[in-house]
Each structure stands twice: as structure tokens, then as C-alpha cells.
């Protein structure tokens, strides 16, 4: 049943600024087909001012409405003014969004930030993400940094709210405990730190055997749960080469999966010095 404000309805039924912007000089993309929603935001920036903005969105009514109202909000603003636009501003401009749709407004904010980063020539990546940001929700590619930021900026206090705002934990639920720990940490409640097990020294043979065991018994089953898969290609000293398969190929967070889940798990459980590399294959070559 319709559970939207008139404003959401209006922006969904007749969205503003739809389509590709041919002379855009900043583009921000978030989400994917696999995740169920995706937004591609096009900006034309002149003298640090956004003179035009358009979007393309795949998603539900509130995702389309959030994108539409976002373009209205940022047109004419300077980059700095635009960066001050929060997901809450997007939701407010729509007269509010249902709790379970708040992630649509977060997607708008993230696309805007990604576009501005691309304009400034900064590395692409998600909000709050730095080189060491850890992937928490593998289904939707949500990092710890994104979760912490959503909690801080929106005053969230429960796991359910985090799911509503970031989608983390909304599919397989495998990361809900992890999310709970982050919520507890951010809200100052008691936190039980996870104790990774690390064997001390080992021979090359032991390391190889341990890597194989952890991939087969820990990593593979978890990727399988989401329809993904992994293949061990080679182990050369501390360098482990793997190939992601199945749903992992459709997933925009596969790089993060590789670095944050596969590499981190191997570092935690086998050897802190392990480096995981994707199998190199010529573009277009069939798997």
C-alpha cells in the first residue's frame, strides 16, 4: 500500500531532472542492480557552483523521489553548500520517508559526495571510507565507516535503525552482531571486542595449508550463502591469489569483499602479513 507523503508521490510520478547530462563534469554512482537500488548522479560544475544536475535511478518509489528532490536541492549551490546537504535534508524535503526507506536518502547523499569527489579528482569510494575501512555488510557493501557515520549524523540507537538507514544486515543478516557491536560502541554501551586467533610462527607449508583450510571452511561457505564463490588460484609466500565467482561478480563491493573480508579473515586467522590479490585476467576474457 502507498505509505508515502504527497511530496514523495509527486517526485516519483513526475521526477525532476531525469536522464544523462551530456556535458556533466562530475558523476557519482552508488548501489548496483544486485543491491536493488542504484543512483547515478550527473553534475555540471562551473566555478565551484553546480549549475545543472540530473540523475538516473534504479529502485523503488522513494529511491526515485529522493534522487529527484536531491537534484532540486543542489542546483545553484556551491560545492561546499552542496556538501552540507545531508540525508536528513533529502528526507525532510520529501516531507519524510518511511523508516525502512531512509536508506534511499542516504544513497542520495552518498552519490552527491561521490560526484564531488570525482570532480575534485579524488579517489572513488564510499562515504567515510578510507583505505582501511572494513566491510561489514557484504550483501549490500556497507562499511564500518558508513555505519558509524549514519549513527552519528542521524542519532541512531538500534540495529534496526542502522538497517533502515544503510541497509546493512537487511538481507542475509549475517552481520547483525557486528552492527550491534558498532551501535554499542557508538552509543557508549558495553562492547565485547572480537578476539582474532593468530598462530605465532609457521612454515610456508603450514601457511599454505592454513590458507586453504580457512578459505574452504570459513570464507567459501560465507560467500556461498550470498550466492558467491571463491577459487584459490595460487599461494606464493604471503601473497594469496584468488578469483571471486558467482554473485560476487555482480557485486560492486567485490573489491571490498576481497580486501576486507577475504584478506582480513586470512590475516586474522592465518598470518597478519598475508596479502590477497585478485587473479589478473585480460578484460573480456571469459571465466
Amino acid at each position: 500500500m502507498w505509505n508515502y507523503t504527497d511530496k514523495v508521490r509527486e517526485h516519483f510520478l513526475a521526477p525532476h531532472n531525469v536522464g544523462e547530462l551530456k556535458d556533466a563534469n562530475a558523476i557519482g554512482e552508488v548501489g548496483s542492480l544486485a543491491c536493488g537500488d542504484a543512483l547515478k548522479l550527473y553534475l555540471k560544475i562551473e566555478n565551484d557552483r553546480i549549475i545543472d544536475a540530473t540523475f538516473q535511478t534504479f529502485g523503488c518509489a522513494s529511491a526515485i523521489a529522493s534522487s529527484s528532490v536531491l537534484t532540486d536541492l543542489i542546483k545553484g549551490k556551491t560545492i561546499d553548500e552542496a556538501l552540507a546537504v545531508t540525508n536528513k535534508d533529502i528526507a525532510d524535503a520529501l516531507g519524510g520517508l518511511p523508516d525502512q526507506k531512509m536508506h534511499c536518502s542516504v544513497m542520495g547523499q552518498e552519490a552527491l559526495e561521490a560526484a564531488i569527489r570525482s570532480y575534485r579528482g579524488e579517489a572513488p569510494g564510499k562515504t567515510g571510507e578510507d583505505a582501511h575501512d572494513r566491510l561489514v555488510c557484504r550483501c549490500f557493501g556497507v562499511t564500518e565507516g558508513q555505519i558509524r557515520r549514519a549513527i552519528r549524523e542521524n542519532g541512531l540507537t538500534s540495529v534496526e535503525q542502522v538497517t533502515n538507514f544503510t541497509k546493512a544486515g537487511g538481507a542475509c543478516g549475517g552481520c547483525l552482531e557486528d552492527v550491534a557491536a558498532i551501535v554499542a560502541d557508538e552509543t557508549g554501551r558495553s562492547l565485547t571486542p572480537l578476539q582474532p586467533q593468530r598462530p605465532k610462527t609457521m612454515t610456508n607449508i603450514e601457511r599454505m595449508q592454513n590458507v586453504m583450510t580457512v578459505i574452504n571452511e570459513v570464507i567459501k561457505p560465507r560467500l556461498n550463502q550470498d550466492g558467491g564463490d571463491i577459487e584459490l588460484v595460487d599461494i606464493d609466500g604471503s601473497v594469496v591469489t584468488v578469483a571471486l565467482r558467482g554473485m560476487c561478480l555482480d557485486c560492486p563491493s567485490s573489491r571490498l569483499t576481497l580486501e576486507n573480508f577475504v584478506q582480513q579473515t586470512l590475516r586474522d586467522q592465518v598470518d597478519p602479513g598475508i596479502v590477497v590479490r585478485p587473479e589478473q585476467r585480460a578484460p573480456g576474457e571469459n571465466a
Binding site: 578469483a243 560476487c248 561478480l249 555482480d250 560492486p252 573489491r255 585478485p278 589478473q280 571469459n286 571465466a287
Partner: peptide
């Protein structure tokens, strides 16, 4: 091949986004 195309532009590890 929509999903894959977005994957690569989102910075997927090179080589993995191609089937």
C-alpha cells in the same frame, strides 16, 4: 551487461568484473 558495467566503474578489482 548492466551489473558488470557498474561494477567496474565502481572500482571493482580489475579483471574480476569480466565474465
Amino acid at each position: 551487461d548492466g551489473a558488470e558495467a557498474l561494477c567496474s566503474s565502481a572500482g571493482t578489482a580489475e579483471g574480476l568484473s569480466h565474465r
